[in-house]
Amino acid sequence: MEKLPAKTGWLWVKEGLALFRKQPAEVSTLFLSYMFLMLALGILPIIGQLLPLILVPVFAMSFMQACRQIEEGKRVYPSLLLVSFRSPALRTLLALGVLYLLAAFAAVAVSTLVDGGAFWKAMTGPGLDPRDIEGSNLRLAMIVAALVYIPAAMAFWFAAPLIAWHKMPLGKALFYSFFAVRRAAKAFTVYGLAWLVIGVLLPATISTIVALLFNNMTVIVFILLPLSIILTVVMYCSFYPTYTAVFGKPPRDEAPVPESNDGAR
């Protein structure tokens, strides 16, 4: 694989937006279905707090498959949310999800060296006492946790599609993903910075403008909520171009995805 130029990172964002614009309602419905399912799982005691992380690779493939179908001119249906549960790779994807969970816990655990455990309590406890925040280095702890998690994120980034589409075993998928991201480091740096600007500065700027114009919290929420959903869905759509830029189009030797009854008409 040739090294990708830094500007490729911005192209991934634009390609994600282009995919979203082809079927905005359909892919947004898929995302909202995913969110409602995660909220429902969150009701379960103990395991409900763990399942969303364990199932990340499983549902990541739902959005990757959705983008693939959009690219091929096929309609996206909410039933795609369950596509990985019918995959022979399901067990490996769940094992990858367990590694997601362990890596996240490890990164947050390391941050306790910086803030004495305030960030750990915020992530694992029912709530954070304001007294725990006073005098703690919570922001620094979040930065440390993010930096510690970066190598794991590199190994996880392409692991799910490599497992599901290329039928790689878990260890091989993690290995290939890590070094693929490392080789495209400049492109991923631009990609990450682009989403940092879009996801943080854009909503902050819009909320400030709306607050100056209306000074009404209800109006601000009414505007920012759909904006945040759209930006998140576009970001999900942009994951697919990062894969195709590195590994090419997905192989066609896997079983076809079942169409919904509406698609048969």
Score class of each variant (00 low, 15 high):
1 M>L: 06
3 K>R: 03
3 K>Q: 00
4 L>K: 01
6 A>Q: 06
6 A>G: 10
7 K>E: 13
8 T>N: 04
19 L>R: 08
20 F>H: 02
21 R>D: 12
22 K>R: 14
22 K>A: 07
25 A>V: 10
26 E>F: 06
27 V>M: 14
28 S>A: 11
31 F>G: 01
38 M>N: 09
38 M>Q: 12
40 A>V: 04
42 G>E: 09
45 P>Q: 03
46 I>D: 09
48 G>L: 04
50 L>I: 14
54 I>Y: 09
55 L>I: 03
56 V>L: 15
56 V>P: 10
58 V>T: 04
60 A>C: 10
62 S>F: 04
64 M>F: 01
66 A>K: 01
67 C>F: 02
68 R>C: 00
70 I>V: 12
72 E>T: 11
73 G>Y: 08
75 R>T: 07
75 R>E: 12
85 F>V: 08
92 T>D: 02
106 A>K: 11
106 A>C: 11
109 A>P: 11
110 V>H: 11
111 S>D: 12
113 L>K: 15
115 D>F: 05
117 G>D: 14
121 K>A: 13
124 T>I: 07
124 T>A: 15
130 P>Q: 12
131 R>Y: 15
135 G>W: 06
138 L>T: 05
140 L>R: 10
145 A>D: 11
148 V>A: 01
150 I>T: 13
151 P>F: 08
155 A>W: 00
156 F>R: 04
158 F>N: 00
159 A>R: 07
160 A>M: 01
165 W>G: 00
169 P>W: 00
169 P>D: 14
174 L>T: 01
175 F>C: 03
176 Y>H: 12
177 S>A: 02
181 V>E: 06
182 R>L: 12
189 T>D: 03
195 W>F: 02
197 V>N: 14
198 I>V: 15
202 L>V: 11
209 I>K: 13
210 V>Y: 06
212 L>C: 05
214 F>G: 05
215 N>G: 05
217 M>D: 13
217 M>T: 07
218 T>R: 09
222 F>D: 05
226 P>V: 05
226 P>L: 14
226 P>R: 13
229 I>V: 12
233 V>W: 02
237 C>V: 00
243 Y>P: 04
244 T>L: 02
246 V>Q: 11
249 K>Y: 10
250 P>A: 08
250 P>F: 02
251 P>A: 11
252 R>C: 02
257 V>M: 04
259 E>Y: 06
262 D>M: 05
